[in-house]
Nucleic acid binder design. Structure first.
Length: 290
DNA sequence: AACCCGCCCAACCGCGTCACG
DNA sequence: CCGTGACGCGGTTGGGCGGGT
């Protein structure tokens, strides 16, 4: 049989959190920091399992959480990232500051998937209708509509989604030669913190320059050295590269020119209607040059 | 006013993976 | 190398709420 459930202990509270519990948890984490979730309830005096505490903190109490009102920009980004990554909610959430994987998952399941399904159904129903002329005048819209959403079908997802592997990395890189300050995100909280850069950071910057990609505004600890990752995980180079791209600002990627970066430009649809896909050529190129 | 129904989203659960002894 | 504990992720559940009848 599998692992015994961590919350099987009798006397544990379940269900919705009370304001009192929220307060206790917040204060405790403010004082002692995140982590050691298993022991946290005991130490904080909460009748909750550690898992529940962690979830409550990450999805609700953590500072900087944005709630509700998914903007059209965020929505479009979610759709594009989902098309690329599939149900990798944590990765998608990582590209949306202040949003949690749970919120994005819920939003997708309750809102977007339905709308997209409906849209696809309509597309099928209108299959034989003449498409309206692509009027240049009407190309620029203030807000994206459902017609701007890339068409998603099971087939395209199956064929193009890259299943990256989210990995934990607790190793701390020593900083031998402090150079300049950059803003870097805390791995778990996404809160930007000032840190001294190292020669590794310099290499990372070179990586972005070499690939003609604007460097990410926020770099997670676990991704600050792409080449290290590729060495650590043989045959995972392409997945890590995609992860790197996802760490960068999406708008930057979309601004890449065709001439300057053929590979990266394949990631960037020239229009909202164009599916966000990795071309076979690009994948083969990456796989062949890992 | 009472009931029903559907939706939303916080929370739960199981499992895969990693770190460490 | 192996076992175990802990963490993190993604799928699922169910309570609360609002709208309709």
């Amino acid at each position: 049989m599998g692992r015994s459930p961590c919350c099987a202990k009798e006397g544990m509270n379940k269900g919705s959190w009370t304001a009192m519990e929220d307060n206790i948890l917040s204060e405790f984490i403010k004082t002692h920091g995140e982590g050691r979730w298993r022991n946290l309830p005991k130490r904080a005096g909460l009748k909750r399992c550690g898992k529940s505490c962690r979830l409550r903190w990450l999805n609700y109490l953590r500072p900087g959480i944005k709630r509700g009102n998914i903007s059209p920009d965020e929505e479009e980004l979610i759709i594009r990232l989902h098309k690329l990554l599939g149900n990798r909610w944590s990765l998608i959430a990582g590209r949306l500051p202040g949003r949690t994987d749970n919120e994005i998952k819920n939003y997708w399941n309750t809102s977007l998937s339905k709308r997209l399904n409906q849209h696809n159904t309509n597309q099928t129903a209108n299959h034989n209708l003449k498409k309206p002329r692509n009027d240049v005048k009407n190309k620029k819209k203030l807000l994206p509509t459902i017609d701007d959403v890339p068409k998603i079908s099971t087939q395209t997802i199956e064929s193009n989604v890259v299943r990256t592997k989210a990995v934990r990395c607790t190793k701390v890189f020593i900083n031998p030669q402090p150079q300049q300050k950059i803003i870097r995100a805390n791995k778990t909280t996404n809160v930007a913190v000032d840190q001294q850069t190292s020669s590794m950071d310099y290499n990372v910057e070179n990586f972005w320059v070499d690939h003609n990609i604007s460097s990410p505004r926020l770099l997670d600890e676990e991704y600050k050295m792409p080449s290290d990752l590729m060495m650590d995980v043989p045959n995972m180079g392409v997945f890590n590269l995609i992860s790197e791209l996802l760490k960068s600002d999406f708008s930057d990627i979309c601004e890449l020119s065709n001439e300057s970066s053929k590979g990266a430009s394949d990631l960037s649809p020239s229009s909202p209607e164009e599916p966000f896909v990795l071309s076979q050529e690009l994948l083969e190129d990456w796989l062949g040059n890992q």
